[in-house]
Computed example of a mutant assay.
Amino acid sequence: MDKNSAAALYKKMQTEVEAYQGLQKSCVKVVKQRAMLESQLNENKCVLDELNLLGADNKVYKLFGPVLVKQELEDSRQNVGKRIEYISKELNSSNNTLESMEKDMHKHREAVSKYQQQWQVAAAMK
């Protein structure tokens, strides 16, 4: 293997490493986002559980800025249910994104490994 092909091989390996590192950083962001969504989902499920314990004679208030505004119980249940649905969809989306990123990371790891092996063979032949 001549000097130019060794340099080209090294450049390919470096490109794969950089792509892998970029995916790692993105992956960390998605994991943080997913954790936040899971927290919001659990919180909203607890709120819905509490709302389901209330009877028709109970009063429900919602905080709008600095003001508490009376709200119908059924409206509150529906709003929280819609929030749970939305958060669940976002959570599924982030899970799918993370799964796709992990597959891409695996491909880059394999490519780096392949280039490293080729590099070692070339170095041993010198």
Rank of each mutant, 00 (worst) to 15 (best):
N42I: 00
W119D: 03
S39T: 13
L41V: 06
L23Q: 08
A122C: 11
E72D: 13
L23M: 15
I87R: 06
A19G: 00
G55H: 05
H106S: 10
G65R: 06
N79C: 10
M105F: 13
S93W: 04
Q14E: 15
K62A: 10
A7G: 05
N96G: 03
L41Y: 08
L91V: 00
G65F: 10
L48E: 09
L98T: 09
L68Y: 15
K3W: 01
R83C: 04
G81T: 14
V69K: 07
K3R: 09
Y86L: 07
K25G: 11
L23H: 09
T15K: 07
G22E: 02
I84S: 07
K103N: 09
K107R: 12
V67G: 00
E110D: 13
Q116I: 10
V121F: 03
K126W: 11
E85S: 11
Q33C: 05
N44H: 12
R83F: 00
L54K: 13
D57M: 07
M36Q: 06
E74M: 11
H108R: 10
E72Y: 07
L91W: 10
V31L: 06
D2V: 07
N52P: 02
L68D: 02
L41P: 07
E90C: 14
L63R: 15
T97F: 04
M101N: 15
M13Q: 15
V67F: 06
Q40T: 01
K82W: 09
A124N: 09
K114I: 12
F64L: 12
V80F: 05
R83E: 06
V30F: 01
K45T: 02
A7F: 12
D104E: 14
A123G: 02
A8Y: 03
E102D: 01
H108K: 15
D57N: 14
Q78R: 06
Q24H: 05
S113K: 14
A7D: 13
N79W: 00
N79E: 14
L48M: 05
K11W: 02
L63H: 10
K32M: 08
D49N: 12
Y10N: 09
